[in-house]
Design a protein around this nucleic acid. Sequence first.
RNA 1: GCACUUGUAGCUUAGAGGUAGAGCAGCUGGCUGUUAACCAGUUGGUCGUAGGUUCAAAUCCUACCAGGUGCGCCA
Length: 466
Amino acid sequence: MSLVSIVDALAGKPGEGEKVTVQGWVRTRRDSKAGLSFVNIHDGSCFNPIQAVVDNNVNNYESEVIKLTTGCSVRVTGTLVPSQGKGQTFEIQATEVEVLGWVDDPDTYPMPMKPHTVEHLRKHAHLRPRTNLIGAVTRVRNCLAQAVHRFMHENGYNWIHTPIITASDAEGAGEMFRVSTLDQANLPMTDKGEIDYSKDFFGQESFLTVSGQLNVEAYCLAMSKVYTFGPTFRAENSNTSRHLAEFWMVEPEIAFADLSQNADLAEAMMRYIFKAVLDECGDDMAFFQQRVDKDCINRLENVIDNNFERMSYTDVISVLEKSNKKFEYDVKWGIDLQSEHERYIAEEYVGRPTVVTDYPKDIKAFYMRMNDDGKTVAAMDVLAPGIGEIIGGAQREERLDVLDARIEEMGLPAEHYWWYRDLRRYGTVPHAGFGLGFDRCVSYVTGVQNIRDVIPFPRVPNNVKF
RNA sequence: GCACUUGUAGCUUAGAGGUAGAGCAGCUGGCUGUUAACCAGUUGGUCGUAGGUUCAAAUCCUACCAGGUGCGCCA
């Protein structure tokens, strides 16, 4: 007897006629009173469940097997045989069915085998991974994450574990979550009547990171090719289908590189990880294509086969102005692009991911490299149809005097950035990087529209359940 | 943060001033191999909560609670 995963069993790996054991959860049971039941079992190893054929010679057939309902956990032992029925290659002719866990009250089990709304699944986030949809999302998400690491590794990048707790705000903007061990009911105060953070755990104010970028730049200017991949946190009161308070970002940083090499890397990485999904998650993608978004596979193939469109911000503005389209927000050089503008460019004008470069300096962060025109910075956003901004990046300002001027111009506290400035004082080099919103990427790949359904336990304003 | 919108059985929903109906799930029975099986029967709801209007409220009004969509901010 050998314990096998369902993906291996369905592939016939143990060999025809071999005795195997699988463990998992019941998805459906169909039976014929003549003495035969078909129990479909999933274990998360692949999209399809395996069918166990159980006849009434099995000793607990009457007492247990015909009482199995969706969600029960079982261990099934039997012979792996080619299926007599359609729909699967191999099935298990069961000789033994051990029920590990019953479903308490099948009438109120929240995940019966029927169509559910994503809102209902969200309310039962602890049970939703048992569904086809969330199971498939989970495998695709894993595939994408593994592919990111593989791509980076194969291309000589070092994965840097940048800190989660930080004292600095990466962009001088954006709300941060405070990290504190002070007694909230009895806060220590200074003579000035302000909260005395010198009494706090770190002896100063500290927060959850909004980006690992500044830290990873330090490692970039030593290791040359680096990236971070971890959770980030934004305390913004954003209520949309593409924002989370806790989300995951991939942030590569390359030394001796400019904006165009940065865009090249972003494109190569997306191609690589999308190809991995098509190669490794065919059944899951077929499901998304059938039930969620009929274009999802075409969309990935399209990205793999075609270059991203590249346009400067200035060109985008002129396209928008000439579009004759009625926008809610007026288009004029200098504005930040609105969702409606980005959508028009990515979805209607180009029809595939588009890299927009060289934005006006006034709408971008202090660390982005000033272009020779003195008006724009070497920033880039990758706009994906249906999602909007999926990547934001820039060539970094490596010239200390220009960086200092920008920090002052934007009224930022220079002392906070002393070590970031040091990187420009000691062996500075041109470098560039970007941040890929990993959850948005999963949403783009699967076609699942709400970002809350592509992360296991979503954190959004007014909701930290589970 | 702003605007809009929705709460009816475990789930999905019909009902739009006159006292709640269905499909699925569950349960019972039937069917020699089914594919989110099929056939027959059946349990289950003080209509999100609290007020108010009315002879009468699931239905109209107010507040609260819990969801959703869009916008802003961004990834």
